[in-house]
Amino acid sequence: MAGISWHYVLKFIITGDAAVGKSSLLVRLTDQRFLANPDPTLGVEFGSKLITIPEENKIVKLQCWDTAGTESFRSITRSYYRGAAGCLLVYDVTNRTTFESCRTWLADVREHADPHLTCILVGNKVDLCASEDGDAPRRREVPAEEGERFAQEEGLLFVEASAKSGENVQEAFERAARDILAKIQQGVFGDDRSPGVKTSRPTNNNLTLDQAGSNGRCCT
């Protein structure tokens, strides 16, 4: 069990419309493979990954909860917003409706989540717009500039990615993680004040850190 050497544990949620590729992004991150034709996620699924942020010299453990995009699970998935430090808001660049729904998703997240939550807008499936494939490329319906603009207006990070090719997937998580680490440095999250962030001294892998985490919240 020597694998538990991390400085921070960050809880992430992945959200967005159905079939924009949330589960595929997560599987690409954790298993480095492309999940073709997955079944729709029921409720939530968990996946985790250790990443290194070299400039901070920190090892970060990402705990990701991949939520269902289907409306019927909305009430269940909301329960996860509150405890998250980071959020991947995903849309499909070849499907305008999924981009437009982002406004609603964002409102939902802002309503339920920690105000300091870091949110990154991810335009997925850019591989479909590249035309080198034999089959006719699907038309891009959301230009990158538009996504960028929306992200700026709302104060979100922005990246376009592809779970199929792997392009920018890890980068998306890393950028969000860097942002959160910066917030921690600035003291925004204080000492374990957010349930989405846990710190650790890597050698100390006992229950004490959980107790520390709980002490901060027991009088809410």
């Binding site: 269940i76 996860y80 405890g83 709980s214």
Partner: peptide
């Protein structure tokens, strides 16, 4: 679903 939500909220930590 309930099992997962509670896991997310840290039920394991409290139980241990």
């Amino acid at each position: 679903e309930i099992q997962k939500v509670l896991t997310f909220e840290g039920a394991f930590e409290r139980l241990f």
